[in-house]
Design a binder for these strands. Structure first.
Length: 286
DNA sequence: CCCTCTGTTGGATT
DNA sequence: CAATCCAACAGAGG
């Protein structure tokens, strides 16, 4: 479920509860959750033993790049992916939370549990020294930290692909998921199908401003402890995501919906006008 | 109760 | 390169 704001909220939570604490034991509930490499496939399990050297180590400050976390503990560096439904929760007693996959027992008596109903998330142990590189592998600059301006953003998106699809490519820019890509495009007034190479400087500037604004809003909306998601009964806090057929919050036009790259995409047909259809070759449109 | 559909991720396959 | 499939499960709706 998480997008960048939820992952950042988890980073802060882990920092608050674990940094400086000692890891006294590891409870492997689901060996498939600890994987030898990044994968959404639980079958790539079999790395639980690689956690043993971390026991007795002290937690260092977790880092975040895009939607990935890196978490040092002793001589081990844990690369953490939350997938769709991954959470870390703290419990002080013996209670094992629902969907618990892995528990890290701290020297203050608390346990940090990795829970993940859908099992797309994983923990990948690395040597601590290579942690940052491992987490960063294959990722573009972080969407929140990079603070790219219009021209810099345009330079990273030199492609004819539709902007919505390109925004989800973590190798170009790390951190935007489906919801925030949809919302950022709405804020920027760009239609999701607009080919990247047809967006003008003005459009890139609007998008460069919209992305951090959207992500920071998302972060501000999260409580410090409670991380809530759409499916948990909260009111839909988004402008167009999940609002197909409902009026655009700006102009009242019914929000449109289509599937792009396998993901539900929504937009306002008026605030985000469709790109002009372009022919393969440049010619006079007679 | 049962069936179908949808899904906030991302790697593998075609 | 790009579209599709799929991992495993919850929740909503018919």
């Amino acid at each position: 479920m998480p997008e960048l704001p939820e992952v950042e909220a988890h980073r802060r939570l882990l920092d608050r509860y674990a940094t400086g604490r000692r890891l006294v034991d590891v409870v492997v509930v689901d060996p498939g959750a600890v994987r030898p490499r990044r994968s959404t496939r639980p079958s790539a399990g079999g790395a639980a033993a690689a956690l043993r050297p971390a026991i007795g180590g002290v937690f260092g400050p977790p880092l975040r790049i895009g939607k990935r976390l890196g978490w040092p503990v002793g001589e081990v560096g844990l690369e953490v992916h939350l997938g769709m439904t991954g959470h870390w929760v703290r419990r002080s007693g013996d209670e094992v939370p629902r969907f618990a996959r892995l528990g890290l027992r701290l020297d203050d008596g608390a346990t940090l549990w990795f829970t993940d109903a859908r099992r797309f998330g994983c923990v990948v142990p690395h040597p601590r020294d290579g942690l940052r590189d491992a987490v960063q592998a294959g990722l573009g600059p972080d969407a929140l930290d990079a603070a790219l301006d219009g021209p810099a953003l345009a330079a990273r998106f030199r492609t004819p692909r539709p902007i919505k699809v390109a925004l989800l490519d973590q190798a170009r820019l790390a951190g935007l998921g489906n919801i925030h890509a949809v919302e950022a495009l709405f804020l920027a007034g760009l239609h999701p199908d607009t080919p990247c190479d047809s967006i003008d400087a003005e459009g890139w500037s609007r998008l460069a401003a919209a992305i951090p604004r959207q992500l920071r809003d998302g972060l501000a909306d999260l409580g410090d402890d409670e991380i809530r998601y759409l499916s948990e009964g909260a009111e839909n806090p988004f402008r167009v995501y999940g609002r197909a057929g409902l009026p655009c919050p700006v102009c009242g036009t019914p929000v449109a919906r289509a599937v792009r790259a396998g993901r539900t995409t929504t937009w306002c047909p008026r605030c985000q006008p469709a790109p002009r259809v372009r022919r393969g070759a440049r010619r006079r449109s007679g």
